[in-house]
Structure formats: structure tokens, C-alpha cells
Nucleic acid binder design. Structure first.
Lengths: 226, 226
DNA sequence: CGACCTCAGATTGTCGACAAAGTGTGCAAA
DNA sequence: TTTGCACACTTTGTCGACAATCTGAGGTCG
């Protein structure tokens, strides 16, 4: 999903995507005030489309608006991330269970190939953490699609996915869980291939739970510093 | 939630609530085109705030927008409702499990009292189905709050409940599952009181699954007619 | 010296008008 | 009659300006 592919038809959608990108990559700091006039000027558009974009982002939980006081970038505090990972555990677990029943053999094979690609990228070592993270999200998103539950895909894809990327960007320089994560991914694909939905769900839940514990430690360290 | 209590500060928020209400109650039919100018006039405001409201409703999945072609009320087809109930099962099950650990004894007692009120209302028989439905949603929402997971509360409260209310309004005249539902609610409260999260989750999942089967039958009948 | 009030400055909320895209109708030609 | 095209009309997308609200600096009074 290259950021330069901003070929949305309406300016409001363009603004939504550009803002989301800036927020996720940390270009706009957490808690930062978002001035409508300033952003509108920067993006070369009026305030109308920008306001619509802000509303949209509010729905995605990337910004928080308060009437007559403007919009600020959301701050990912510990509680919020804990909540996010909790919900994700339930939702992605469910996605796995459904995917085990719904995905075609071909799709599951492609999922395995995706992991091969990740492994190669990791071996190449140079693979930036960021790219690796994106790959990980790809994996999760493909499983969400495999569930065939459109609401689940939307929930995991359009909304939580962005928050997750934001979290990753913040913690990526510290966490190096890529290898164990890859192994867990492999186990999940195997369970899917065996059409063992229960096992796939359990593995995914553990995988996410483990990721949260890892993230949680990082946050602890950061808070100790502060 | 009286509809006359429209004391939101911004017009966009007012429009959001009024539109949501009109959609949920079926005053605006499913699939109906939403003309910006017409609605703006009816609500006595400009098109700007109304457009923001439309964006917001799009995030809530109550309307579907397509660029340059306007907004239409979402249509609740069978697949979508199936997806909704599936997600709800996972989410509300999770809420129950957390609530069993997080709610105070007092809150659980209040939940029981809420059910007493529902029972009285059912006995009074006159209790309109609509009111009963609202009561049911109250119950579910209180449990979501009991989970202390804010993201979960938002997901269940702000978005899915509206769709659910919409679904209820459409099927309410046919489904009379209030008594068994009340019984299941009682069992859930009991599990919560015993701090048995696993049982509470299982009971809630069954409760929702049962509700879906009931709704599903109604849809079948409606489709046979058509 | 501190608390409170006043009054600009800045920012958000709202409106009306214009531009662009889409839609439908009617006429002409095959 | 049917197909295709052109034109007018409707509706959405966007902009600039004005009104309402909030913020903060400065001064005044206790």
C-alpha cells in the first residue's frame, strides 16, 4: 500500500490517507494539536474536505476531537494498547477459526509462500524492521480476509490495523521478536492447512498475547526512563 | 435516550444523532438515497455539517457512501447480519469473561435489578416490543461497560448496537423470544456473581447464537414471501 | 502578591455560492 | 422501434467568508 498511491477521487479521502500516514509513521506526534487551517494549507485544499477527513479519522480512533477545541492525535497509553490487544486477540482468534474452514487450499498455500518471503527477508538481515512489520500485518490481514466475514475484515483492517502500525512504529526499534513470530506464523498456517480451526484460534491467541507481553515490557522500560 | 434531547453542541453531531435515529427506526428505508440538500433543509442547517454527519454515519456502517454518487442507507442483508452476529458473539463473550473479573458486586446486583425490571415490564404485557428491545440492549451494554475495556465498549456501543437496533426494529414484530432471553440473562448474571468468567462467556455466546438462529429464521420467512 | 476580569487574537463551526461530476430525457438516425 | 448522442438538470465536491467560541495576555482590584 504505497503512500504515493494517493489517487482517491475526493480531496477528503486524500486528506484522510495522508493524515493517517503521517500519524501512523509518527510524523505527527501523539497528542499533537491538529490545526485545520494549517493542514488545509499544507495539503492545498479548503477546510471543508479536511474537516471530513478529521471526522473519518476520529471514527478510526486515530484522532480525538472535542467540540470547539479541535482535534489532537490520539495518544497510545498503556491502557489503550492493552484494550486493543485484548480485542485483537478475540477478533483474530475468531478470524483464524473461520479461516480454517473457509480458505481455499490455494490461499493457504499462498500464505505459506508469504512466510517464505518473510523468512528470506529476515535472513537477508538488512530487511528493515519496518518492512518486516508490514509483512507481519500482511499475514494477519490475509487471515482476516480468509474468514470471509466482511465486518471482521473491516474491523481488523481499516481501523485496528492503523493503530497497530502506529504502535509498531513506536516500539519497532526495540522489539526483535521476528524469529519466534515467524515460527508461530508457521504453526498457524499448518493448523489452517489441517483445517483445525480450534488449534489455529488457540495459536493465534497465544501469538497475539505473546506480542502484547513483549510490547508491554517495552512500554515499562520507556516509562521507567520517563 | 429521548430523541428530543438533542442538545449536542454542534449541528453536525445533532444531524448524526437524528439521522441515526431515523435510520434505526426505519423512518428512512434501507437502501434509500440520502439527498444532502433535502436533509440539510429538513434539519435547518447547511450542507457542511450534514456532510460531516454522513461521514460519521459511514464510520458507524449505517450509511454507505460512494464518491460523486451520494449516500444511501445501508441494507441489512442476510450475509451482513450473519457477520454482525458472529463478531458480536466473539466480542460479547469476551466482555462477559472480563466483566466476571472486573465488575463490582454492586454493579452485578444492579444488573440483576435491571432484569427484575424487565421481567415486570414483560409481565405487564403491554410493554411494547420496542421498549423490551431497548431493555435488552441496556443489559448487553452494561456488561460491555463491566469489561472495563474501553475499545470493546466503543465497538459494541457506538457502532454495533445501532445496527442491532436497526435489525431489531425490522424483525421485532415477529420474534417473541423475550422470555427465554430473560432466562438466559439471569443465568449470565448468576455466572458473573459467581465470578465464573468462562461460564459467563459460554452462556453469552450461546445466547447470541440463539438470537441469531431466531433472526435467521425470520429472514428466511421474509425471503420466502419475496 | 495573587485572583479576577476584560479584551483582543486565534481557532473552530457554519453558511452560501460556484465548479465538477453524474443522471435522465428527448430527438435523430439506422 | 431501437440505439446512440447531446443537452439540460440534478446532485455532489469544494471554496471563501462570516459568526460563535475558546485561549491567553495584560491590567486592575482586593
Amino acid at each position: 500500500m504505497p503512500s504515493s498511491l494517493t489517487q482517491q477521487s475526493t480531496l477528503a479521502d486524500q486528506a484522510t490517507h495522508r493524515l493517517a500516514h503521517s500519524i501512523v509513521t509518527g510524523e505527527l506526534a501523539q497528542g499533537q494539536k491538529l490545526n485545520e487551517a494549517e493542514l488545509a494549507e499544507r495539503y492545498g485544499m479548503g477546510r471543508g474536505p479536511l474537516r471530513e477527513a478529521l471526522r473519518h479519522l476520529e471514527g478510526m480512533r486515530l484522532v480525538k476531537r472535542t467540540p470547539n477545541a479541535g482535534a489532537r492525535v490520539v495518544v497510545l497509553d498503556r491502557k489503550m494498547l492493552a484494550d486493543l490487544y485484548g480485542v485483537r486477540e478475540a477478533l483474530e482468534g475468531m478470524a483464524c477459526r473461520l479461516a480454517a474452514a473457509q480458505m481455499s487450499d490455494d490461499e493457504i498455500a499462498q500464505l505459506g509462500a508469504l512466510l517464505d518471503k518473510h523468512e528470506a527477508q529476515i535472513a537477508k538481515q538488512g530487511g528493515k524492521v519496518y518492512a518486516q512489520s508490514e509483512g507481519d500485518l500482511d499475514f494477519h490481514f490475509q487471515i482476516a480476509r480468509g474468514s470471509r466475514n466482511h465486518m471482521l475484515m473491516d474491523l481488523l483492517g481499516s481501523e485496528q490495523y492503523q493503530l497497530l502500525r502506529m504502535c509498531r512504529h513506536r516500539t519497532s526499534r526495540l522489539a526483535q521478536r521476528t524469529l519466534p513470530a515467524l515460527h508461530q506464523h508457521r504453526q498457524i498456517v499448518e493448523a489452517l492447512a489441517n483445517r483445525d480451526g480450534e488449534l489455529a484460534e488457540m495459536l493465534m491467541r497465544r501469538h497475539i498475547h505473546g506480542a502484547w507481553r513483549s510490547i508491554s515490557e517495552i512500554i515499562d522500560k520507556e516509562e521507567q526512563v520517563a
